[in-house]
């Protein structure tokens, strides 16, 4: 019932029929469907990110006993489209002494990195762009471009605050990437595959979910993932009181919006990966698979937002100490235990 997979398959067969009857070579048809799929993924990402910004504002407001956006639309749901129009029409400034080309490319790189990672994210049964046999490794690999982009932005802005923010961000992402990868390895050992679809199909029932076999791994993954996407309690790269805004301080208009956008798509990505690895992905009774995936992912995103609005920010030295002296040994312990008992 209501499986989107069938809809996509029907549309594909319909398009193929039209292309065959018109005598279009298969190469151009493949190219066209690839573009179509890319546009669909882009649309899902955009709508998701816009929804999350609104949701975050509402959640933060309710945590602090306010209402948040209320004026535009029912409970302010039109706020984000209107903010989008504002950002598009804003003047796009570049600092006079900035390194022009890296300054321009940095927001594109961070956006493309998170877009590429969505290729391997299973949104539901059969709803994956391409099930690579190195799936999770691919996601870990392409998201490393985030660091390059942040350092490019920090350096090219020619501003001491943005450089400091870029530095902090890169140091943090590199440090937390290690425990993150090690916690993912635990799941890979259990599944004996890197493919995202195989990881999901190995967790058919709720008692098979990897979170029961890898409780420590799940906690390490979630902690490291919150640090990876630069959110509180690990948001020192953009600590407002110290750095004004961090690496994106000199950006305005749509370029700034792309950084902001990438931040939220990365949040969707890490929570989606956590759902796939630990919470059984699309598996669940009765409802269509994509609703299960969406529900679990949104729940995890809500948990991460809850962190943001209830925990204070850690200091730089605490952050590094926690990552290297506590989280990393714990991740190794988890890996050894998994290796011994799996």
């Amino acid at each position: 019932m209501f499986e989107l997979e069938r809809l996509f398959k029907a549309v594909y067969i319909w398009l193929e029929g039209i292309s065959n009857s018109l005598g279009i070579p298969h190469f151009w048809f493949d190219l066209f469907t690839m573009l179509l799929i890319a546009v669909i993924v882009l649309a899902v990402m955009s709508v998701g990110a816009m929804f999350l910004v609104w949701w975050e504002r509402k959640i933060s407001a309710h945590f602090q006993q306010r209402f948040g956006p209320m004026r535009t639309g029912w409970h302010g749901w039109l706020q984000l489209p209107i903010d989008g129009i504002k950002l598009i029409t804003k003047e796009d400034t570049t600092p006079a002494l900035a390194d022009k080309l890296p300054f321009l490319i940095a927001p594109i790189v961070i956006f493309v990195a998170s877009f590429l990672a969505f290729v391997c994210l299973p949104f539901g049964r059969g709803l994956i762009v391409r099930d690579l046999n190195i799936g999770i490794l691919y996601i870990l690999a392409v998201t490393t471009f985030t660091v390059i982009s942040i350092l490019m932005a920090g350096w090219a802005s020619n501003n001491k605050y943005s450089l400091l923010g870029g530095f902090r961000s890169a140091a943090q992402i590199i440090s937390y990437e290690v425990p993150l990868t090690l916690s993912v390895l635990g799941v890979v050992i259990l599944t004996q595959s890197l493919s995202m679809v195989k990881i999901v199909s190995s967790q058919q029932h709720i008692w098979n979910w990897n979170i029961w076999k890898q409780p420590l791994g799940f906690l390490i993954y979630l902690t490291a993932a919150v640090a990876e996407v630069n959110r509180t309690p690990f948001d020192i790269p953009e600590a407002e009181q110290e750095l004004v805004a961090g690496y994106n301080i000199e950006y305005s208009g749509m370029k700034w919006a792309m950084f902001f956008f990438a931040e939220y798509t990365n949040l969707i990505l890490v929570c989606g990966v956590a759902t796939t690895l630990f919470l059984g992905g699309w598996n669940g009774p009765l409802l269509p698979s994509w609703i299960w995936f969406l529900g679990k992912t949104l729940f995890l995103i809500w948990v991460v937002m809850w962190f943001r609005w209830t925990f204070p920010r850690v200091r730089v030295d605490q952050l590094m100490g926690f990552g290297w002296k506590f989280l990393l040994p714990l991740a190794f312990l988890n890996l050894i235990l998994t290796g011994l008992f799996a």
Partner: peptide, 10 residues
């Protein structure tokens, strides 16, 4: 993937 992870990422 390893090329990107190690050379670009690290």
């Amino acid at each position: 993937a390893v090329q990107v992870l190690i050379y670009v990422g690290a």
